[in-house]
């Protein structure tokens, strides 16, 4: 037994998740990304930040069992499970960003302003009616500016699946809104 211990000590010096430094680094690298994914997937009303905290807390409790390479995937699995275990999960609601004042710039006609406000409002409804997977892929691409491959990596799906979802989401938006513009 002590032999094995020595072996482990010499092997894991910088990639041990149980080390506070390593764990903090993980938190700094992935908490924001995880928060975004949860926010777009489940909406603002399901406390994505709380789930992020809980996922990292679980990672810390199980740090000895999770390798550094597996940590990211582990966090996503835990967070998703926790979200799905919340019995009273709320309908997905996306809030307008507080600093946002509509897709309006100064030199636009009142008619355009009115139309685009209406567009935004309808878009909110459509967005909330998309499936979680469609919504998170669309938002990660269009709002967070992530490439298909990055999204695939984050969600653990293929690039093809990412493309399918984004395209489907846009088609639905077009179907519901497009023709009225």
């Amino acid at each position: 037994m002590p032999k094995y211990f020595i072996l482990k000590m010499s092997k894991e010096n910088s990639d041990n998740v149980c080390e506070e430094k390593v764990f903090d680094q993980l938190f700094r690298s992935f908490s924001e990304e995880l928060h975004k994914v949860l926010y777009y997937k489940y909406g603002a009303d399901n406390d994505p930040l709380d789930i992020v905290q809980e996922a990292f807390s679980t990672l810390w409790d199980n740090c000895a069992k999770v390798t550094l390479e597996k940590a990211r995937g582990y966090l996503y699995t835990i967070a998703n499970n926790k979200m799905l275990n919340v019995i009273s999960r709320r309908k997905t609601v996306l809030n307008y960003a507080s600093q946002y004042n509509g897709s309006v710039t100064s030199n636009q006609t009142p008619q355009y302003v009115l139309e685009s406000k209406e567009f935004d409002h309808k878009l909110k409804t459509v967005l909330e009616s998309l499936t979680e997977d469609q919504r998170v892929t669309l938002m990660m691409n269009r709002v967070e500016g992530k490439r298909h491959k990055e999204i695939a990596e984050i969600l653990g799906i293929s690039t093809k699946a990412v493309e399918k979802r984004i395209y489907k989401a846009l088609s639905i938006i077009e179907e519901q809104l497009g023709k009225k513009i």
Binding site: R28, V52, A97, S103, D120, K124, M139
Partner: peptide, 19 residues
């Protein structure tokens, strides 16, 4: 659509505070 979607951007996380 892209312009309008910006309205629904997730709030920025204050990583250090959260940690």
């Amino acid at each position: 659509v892209t312009q309008s979607l910006q309205a629904f951007k997730a709030p920025t996380l204050n990583t250090e505070e959260a940690l």
